[in-house]
Amino acid sequence: MSIEVRPAVVFEDVAALVGPKRPESTVCWCLSYRIPSRLNNELRGQERGAYVARLLEDGPLGVLAYDGEEPVGWAAVAPRSATTFARNRKIPHVDDLPVWSLWCIRVRPGHRGQGISHALIEGAVAFARERGAPALEAYPLDNGGVKVDQTMAYPGLRANFEAAGFHHAADTTSVLSGHPRILMRRDLD
């Protein structure tokens, strides 16, 4: 298997990773941290996919991992200032650098355990670096090696970010699925 990570620009490929199995279902579409909470709560069913399609008209929303032409993984990455992390009270700002945020990693069932999440993290680093980000932050679970439900592992795991050269930059007051989230950072200069 040869994994290639590319900017997420093709709607159908993004939909394959973060869209619903049934079009009328209301699922995250990885919008929860990208748009204001009120709008996120108002968008229902197919409106969410339509909103993502409009966002893609302005450029990539992150990166996708491909096995050949099949999309098998997703990572949401954007300037922190363009996300709700810009004003999140549970996840602190370490400094005033215009950092980027990596907040969601998803690998399709049947493709897990093959290093795709590691490729996605490196792809997100390259994506942010190419766009001038001085550093990339992530907010993974500090699970201490304990198994995490796949549904709630979307922010990634501390060990995966450590393996990618990220360092612990701050504790947070955010907890997800019983595990604390920490702020990790990788300088891109």
Rank of each mutant, 00 (worst) to 15 (best):
E70M: 10
H111S: 09
C28P: 06
Y154Q: 09
G132H: 04
D67I: 00
K21D: 13
P92I: 09
G68V: 04
E162H: 14
R87M: 01
L31D: 00
V10C: 10
A135M: 03
Q46F: 04
A133R: 05
L176A: 07
C30H: 09
E42K: 12
S101D: 11
L97Q: 15
D13H: 14
P109Y: 07
L17R: 05
F161L: 10
A159F: 08
E57P: 03
A126I: 06
D149F: 08
M1F: 07
E42T: 08
E4V: 15
G144D: 07
V146T: 15
L17W: 08
P7C: 06
L141S: 08
R185K: 13
D13E: 13
F127C: 03
L17T: 11
R158C: 04
W100K: 04
Q114S: 03
A76L: 14
D142S: 12
H168I: 14
S101Q: 07
V63T: 05
I116G: 03
A124P: 04
G19F: 11
D95Y: 08
D189R: 12
R108T: 00
H168F: 14
Q46C: 12
R80G: 00
R112T: 13
V9R: 03
I121S: 08
P92Y: 11
V148I: 06
A163R: 15
S174E: 15
E24A: 12
Y154T: 13
A153K: 07
G19T: 09
G115T: 03
V94Q: 08
G49Y: 03
P20H: 10
R44S: 13
E57T: 09
G49L: 02
A16L: 04
G132T: 05
S25N: 11
E130W: 04
A126N: 11
M152I: 10
V175D: 12
V9D: 00
A15R: 15
E130F: 06
P155E: 10
G19D: 10
P20V: 09
G123T: 09
G49E: 04
D96N: 12
V52N: 06
W74S: 01
L176E: 13
T173D: 11
V77P: 01
H118D: 14
N41R: 11
I91Q: 00
G59A: 10
N143D: 14
A75M: 05
A170L: 03
E69D: 15
E47C: 13
Q150D: 14
A159W: 08
V5Q: 06
V125P: 01
R89H: 13
L61F: 09
G113N: 11
P7D: 08
W103R: 00
Q114V: 00
E4C: 13
P155W: 09
R106W: 01
